[in-house]
Simulated assay, not measured.
Amino acid sequence: MKTDKKILDACCGSRMMWFDKYCSEALFMDIRREELLACDGRHIKVDPDIVGDFRAMPFDDESSRLVVLDPPHLRKLGGTSWLAQKYGMLLPSWETDIRAAFDECMRVLKPEGILIFKWNEDQIKVRQILDIIPYKPLFGHPTSKHGKTIWMCFMKN
């Protein structure tokens, strides 16, 4: 599938990291489309432009200049918990899934394209992620109150 958008958010969820949740330059993809009321009363809306799986994206090779990847990062939580509803949950195959996600992001990136990856180390350390992927970040930065959320930048060779 061809896209005329410059940016692909491969796992957009409720677009929480976006300042402009309807950025005209971005194509928002997620594996789910749903609107629900969480157990604590919060409204959650996951409304991607296209429903798709970041492990097997429906896009042509070298079709995006920038890809953003913020996959689920928790594997130990209740399936109906607020966190699972809001962010999704890793499957038992998470190592294979994350590797496939990186491979797909690199496939759809144009040469010298940029991948921005966001990860939270609450349950799985960034070192574990870097050990299962063949790509090395150019740079990154921890954020959040406890420094557990890390942003990293990768460039396709």
Rank of each mutant, 00 (worst) to 15 (best):
R107I: 04
C39S: 15
A101Y: 00
T80V: 04
K110H: 11
K148C: 04
L109W: 05
D61T: 13
F19K: 15
M106G: 03
F102Q: 00
V108N: 04
N120M: 07
V51G: 03
L130Q: 11
H146C: 10
D131F: 12
S63V: 01
E62C: 11
S81M: 02
R15W: 10
M1Q: 03
E34T: 12
I44D: 02
E95I: 04
Y135S: 07
N157L: 13
R55D: 04
D61G: 12
K148S: 08
A56H: 13
I7K: 05
E121N: 15
C105K: 00
A100M: 03
P71H: 03
K145R: 15
V126Q: 06
C105T: 04
I50Y: 09
G140A: 12
S14H: 15
D61A: 13
D53R: 00
I31A: 12
L36F: 10
R32V: 07
E34D: 10
E95A: 12
W94Y: 09
R65K: 15
G147R: 11
R75W: 10
K148P: 00
I114P: 02
F28L: 11
K148T: 02
T143F: 12
D103L: 09
S24G: 07
Y22F: 14
T143P: 06
T149Y: 04
L138R: 13
D103M: 06
T3C: 08
M1I: 05
D49K: 07
F28D: 02
I150G: 01
S64F: 15
K145C: 11
E121P: 12
C12W: 01
P48C: 15
E25V: 12
N120E: 04
Y135I: 11
L74C: 14
C11Q: 10
C23Q: 11
M1R: 09
C12Q: 00
S64G: 10
A38H: 04
T3Y: 04
M106T: 06
A10L: 08
K125T: 13
R107F: 06
R75M: 13
S93D: 13
E34F: 13
C153P: 02
I150E: 01
L130A: 08
K21I: 10
H141M: 15
I150Y: 08
T149G: 02
K76L: 12
M1L: 07
G147W: 05
S144H: 06
